[in-house]
C-alpha cells in the first residue's frame, strides 16, 4: 500500500468535506445510488462529514427548480444523518423567493450555509439582500469561482478573487468561501486578490493538483482560512493535501477548520 503513513492524517483526525454534491434522478428525487456511493467512498477515505449542495450551473434557475434541488439535498441529509449536511442553492435574481428559500432550508431543514453558482458575480448589487440574510442567520456563502483566461469565457459572470475581495470589503461581517481553488482557473490570481480579506475563505477541492497550490494557499490565507473539499475529485483533493509541504498541524486545521465548527453543530441540532 502506498502512502500508508501519510493516510493516518485522515484516519486519525476528523475530516470535514466542505464541497461535494448529490444528484437528482429523472423524477427530481434524490439519486439514492449515487448518494450512497458518495458516502461509501467518503467513509473509505476516512471523511466524517460531507457538506453537499445541488446547484444548477446553467441559465437562470426558477424558484421551483432551486426548491426541488434543495429538497434533494434535504433527502440526502435525512438518508445519512450525521454524515451529510446541506447547503441551500438559490438564484439571487429571484430576491423574494431566494430569501424565503434560505429561511426554509436553514430554519426548517437544518442546512448550514448557502451555495451560489455563476448566475451573478458575488459582488453584484443583486446579491446584497442575500448576503445580508446570511449575515443575519450567521451562515457562510460558498460560491462557484474561478479566474478563467479562456477566450471566449464560457462563464462570463463567474466570480474570481477580485469579486470576492469587493464583496468582503462591503460586508466585513459576511463569511465568504471562494469555491474550489483547485478547480477555478488561475489560482494564484485569486489567492493574491483575497489574501488581505480575512472574511474570505477557500476550499481546496477541484481536479487541479498543481504542485505548490496548497503551500501557496496556506502562505496567502493561512490554514485557518482554508477548508478541505473534493467537489467530485477525491483522489486529487486528498493527494494534494497529503503532498503539500506544510505543517501537520496546518493539515489538521484544514481537514476540520475550527472556524466553521459552529455551522455544523447548529445544523445537527436543526
Amino acid at each position: 500500500m502506498f502512502l500508508k503513513e501519510q493516510m493516518k492524517l485522515f484516519e486519525q483526525n476528523k475530516v470535514v468535506n466542505w464541497h461535494e454534491h448529490v444528484r437528482g434522478d429523472r423524477s427530481g428525487q434524490l439519486d439514492v445510488e449515487q448518494c450512497d456511493l458518495l458516502v461509501e467512498s467518503a467513509q473509505k477515505a476516512h471523511m466524517d462529514v460531507l457538506v453537499v449542495s445541488r446547484p444548477i450551473s446553467g441559465g437562470s434557475p426558477t424558484p421551483d427548480e432551486f426548491r426541488t434541488n434543495n429538497n434533494v439535498v434535504a433527502a440526502a441529509m435525512k438518508r445519512h444523518p450525521g454524515i451529510i449536511q446541506g447547503m441551500a442553492f438559490v438564484n439571487p435574481g429571484f430576491k423574494k423567493e431566494a430569501l424565503a428559500e434560505i429561511d426554509r432550508c436553514v430554519n426548517e431543514l437544518g442546512m448550514v450555509g448557502i451555495k451560489l453558482y455563476n448566475q451573478y458575480f458575488i459582488s453584484d448589487p443583486v446579491l446584497r439582500p442575500i448576503i445580508e440574510k446570511c449575515i443575519e442567520l450567521d451562515i457562510p456563502i460558498l460560491e462557484h469561482a474561478g479566474k478563467l483566461n479562456l477566450v471566449p469565457n464560457p462563464q462570463p459572470t463567474i466570480s474570481d478573487g477580485t469579486h470576492f475581495a469587493k464583496a468582503a470589503k462591503e460586508y466585513p461581517e459576511g463569511i465568504f468561501i471562494e469555491a474550489h481553488i483547485g478547480g477555478g482557473g488561475d489560482w494564484q490570481w485569486s489567492l493574491k486578490a483575497i489574501a488581505d480579506h480575512p472574511n474570505v475563505y477557500t476550499d481546496i477541492s477541484g481536479s487541479v493538483y498543481d504542485e505548490g497550490i496548497i503551500e501557496q494557499t496556506v502562505h496567502y490565507l493561512g490554514a485557518n482560512r482554508t477548508l478541505f473539499g473534493t467537489d467530485g475529485s477525491f483522489s486529487q483533493s486528498i493527494g494534494k493535501l497529503l503532498g503539500a509541504n506544510i505543517s501537520q498541524q496546518d493539515k489538521i486545521t484544514i481537514l476540520n477548520n475550527p472556524a466553521f465548527a459552529r455551522y455544523l453543530e447548529r445544523g445537527r441540532k436543526g
Partner: peptide, 16 residues
C-alpha cells in the same frame, strides 16, 4: 507529470 503536479494523487489511485 512531475514537477507540475503533486505525485500523491497517483499513489492514492494505485491504492484504490
Amino acid at each position: 507529470c512531475m514537477p507540475f503536479q503533486y505525485l500523491e494523487p497517483q499513489l492514492i489511485r494505485l491504492n484504490e
